[in-house]
Structure formats: C-alpha cells, structure tokens
Write a protein that binds this DNA or RNA. Structure first.
Lengths: 210, 210
DNA sequence: GCAAAAATCACCCTTAAAGGGGTATTTTTT
DNA sequence: AAAAAATACCCCTTTAAGGGTGATTTTTGC
C-alpha cells in the first residue's frame, strides 16, 4: 500500500500554536490534508472516528487523558491508524511505553515540519520512522552491559533463567547435566550477590546483563 | 563532541564492489576519510587498532567470524568506536542482536551513500541512526500484543512475575494481600494455559503480553 | 607449553515458595 | 441490574530451588 495524496491527518495537541502551525504547514507543503485538530484526547474521542484519519499526530502531555493512555484507546477505535507521538520530554521509559503501546513513530516538538511530513510518508508506506534522538534512546535501552563479571556460559544460563526456564529445561537446551546448571547458577548468584532466581532476574534486567 | 572533518572510517565488507564503492564515495563526497578497508574481520583484527577508526562500517555476513560475533571483539579492541552494521538480511533477531551487542546503527546494503554519510555524521555527533526499515522491525518487536485475554490487574501481575518478583514482593508493591496475588496468578495460569511461573514467563515473552 | 580460568559433573541436605482446590465479598464497569 | 474484575481466606501437597563441598576436564591467554 502506497501513501495516497488524499491521506487524512488528525492532530491532537494542546498547544494551539503548535497545533495550528503543523496543520497549516502540512496542508500547504505536503500532499496530505489535516482533516481535524483537537486540543485533547477527551475532545477528540467522540468525533475522531468520523474523521477517518490515516495518521494521528498525538501529543504525550495532554490535559485529561495523556497521550500514552490515549494510545491503546485510539488503536481500539481505529485499528488501522498510524500514530506518531509528539513530546518535549524524552525519557527512555515514556518512549518505550509509547512504542510498546503501538505508536508508529516518535518525534519531539521541535522536529521540523519537513521531517514530520517525511515521517508521515514513511508510516503510510509501512516503514516506521524514528528520530535519531529517539532511536538512540531505544538503542541505549537495548544496549547490553559490556563489562559483565559473568562468563559466557554463565551469561547464557542467566539469559535462560530470565526467560523463565528451569534447571531441567536449561540442561536440555545446553546439552549438559542439571548439576552443571546448578553449579553455574551458584556461581552466578555469588557474582551477582544474590541468592535466588527472582533476585537474579531482577539484577539481570537492572544491569542489562542479558 | 562534534564530528571532525578528519574523522576516520574503516570498512569491513567482503564484497569488493560494495567495499570499494562505499570507500570511494565516502572519500569523495564527505568530509570523512576511509583509512582502511578489509574483506573480513579476521583480516582486520590485527591491524585495525593502528587504523584508529572513529567509525567502523561492518558487514554481518562475513567469511570466518561473522559481524555479530565480531561486534563485541571490536568493542573490546576499540571501546570508543561507533559501529554501523551493514547487511542484506533483516530479521528481527539479527537486528536486535546487533543493537544489543553495541552496534550504533544498522543499514541495508542498498542504502544510498548519502544516507550512510548522514548516519556517520549522526553517530559522530552522538545520535544513533536507524534506517526506517530497521526501526520498524525494532518497533514491531517491542509492540505489545493488543488482544490479551488478561485483565488489567492480571497483566500487571504477570509483568511483575516476568521481572522476577515473588508473591510477597508483588503483594507489597500493589498494596494487596499475598492471597490475592495467588488468586490472580491462578487465573492467569488458567487463561494462559500454563501451570507454573516459569511457563507463564515464557508464554508472556512469547506472546508479548507484557 | 603451562598456568589460570571456565566448564563440566556428583552427592548430600533443607525448606521456602509455589501450585491446586474451593469459597466468598466488594468494587467497578457496562 | 447483571457481569466482570478485584479482593481475600483456608487447607493441603510437593517440587524445584538453594547451600555446601569436592573433583575432573576443556579452553584460553600469555
């Protein structure tokens, strides 16, 4: 499916200047049309279905229902819609939350309109855009801790532990004895300074060891 | 730190045409210089430290040591270096592996040189580039399953279970009784058709319920 | 080629935390 | 008003986890 000139955009953004600015620029410098703008999700929710948007530009910091909470509801109302998030803040948590909740992209409010229009084109063509800053945050959050105190095998076993495998499953998967898994596990616990599977999982996630 | 005109690039890529093509274009159409090119990691490993590269463009499908395995070794050799991965394949697994192992960016071989040069600039300035296709894969892999059979509370508890919390910790965190956590857990198990914490974690990861 | 590090396996012993069954009240949503 | 979700208790069983100790083999790094 390729982006059609008549693709319909809706903007949900509380700041009037930004809202109208983007709307004007999109309408005048792109083949897309802004069919509606709303200052909040609560204002939008009863009307937006009739707007039949292809893409929604959604602010995160909205009065009333915020953008993150609005995401799943919008997805429910309009399952096919692409949503591009807009925000001033960029904490790892909010970005990942947004992405995990179904955002197709993520931009800051100082993103030039040209970039935004390019992003709209990208999502309409099925590619998900991501601004470099956001991409960096995502990458950093995925980045594995390089200087692990754990050996290769230990890391491997810790990884299997974190995805819920028990001793027996791990042993089978690695073609080793359960007792060996136990030994490795003990060493892992010593190195990580924990003494239970649960704690190990938490430390592993925390330090991005796996 | 801003990108310096004298920034040094090394290309590790087995296909001679691509290797020399990129080298020529980067040298002639950008302020960066390709200081060395290698057809494999094995050929590069003993010399690359002396090249003092700022950015390495690294192919994934290499003869001998592949790019993914080479990543951590390169990072060890040159902790400060930025690595941009190059590949023809784009499975979710390989991309996430690369990112998790410390790649700064990820592009396909048909990426126009202009884009690649822009990416080099981006990484040198500290922003991580990501091609739209890759970004999409990453996003998709982060995407939460929308139609969970679980309730809000159940999802919440499953989430805590997957990060290794036990009944007691979950109860405390949610200000409810341990017995209530148990009840929810039982219901989760029934719905997910499992009967252990370990299985639940696996199903949760698998179906991206959390 | 040698020493250190990593990976492998085994036996003993203990108990907390997990899992299964059933029941029931309160709160929220529709 | 009915249905769904969230809360809470009781009883009962056992498994998988954790701790201690010791030893052999394989892989790595210099």
């Amino acid at each position: 499916m390729y982006s059609q000139p008549e693709s319909r955009i809706v903007i949900i953004e509380d700041d009037q200047t930004i809202r109208e600015g983007y709307a004007y620029l999109i309408n005048h410098t792109s083949p897309y049309q802004v069919v509606a703008t709303y200052p909040s999700f609560d204002a939008a929710k009863h009307k937006i279905s009739k707007d039949q948007p292809d893409v929604i530009i959604l602010d995160i910091q909205l009065p009333g229902t915020n953008g993150i909470d609005a995401l799943p509801m919008l997805k429910k109302l309009l399952p096919q819609v692409y949503i591009i998030m807009l925000t001033v803040y960029e904490t790892e948590k909010t970005i990942l939350d947004a992405l995990a909740n179904g955002a197709s992209g993520y931009f800051t409010k100082n993103t030039p309109t040209a970039k935004l229009i390019e992003a709209i084109k990208d999502v309409l063509n099925g590619g998900g855009p991501m601004s470099p800053d956001v991409a960096k945050t995502v990458i950093l959050s995925l980045q594995k801790n390089q200087d692990t105190p754990l050996t290769k095998r230990e890391t491997q076993i810790l990884e299997l532990i974190t995805i819920g495998k028990d001793r027996g499953q791990i042993a089978k998967e690695l073609f080793i004895e359960v007792e060996t898994v136990k030994t490795h596990t003990k060493n892992i616990y010593t190195k990580l300074n924990v003494n239970s599977k649960a704690e190990a999982i938490q430390v592993a996630k925390d330090k991005k060891l796996v």
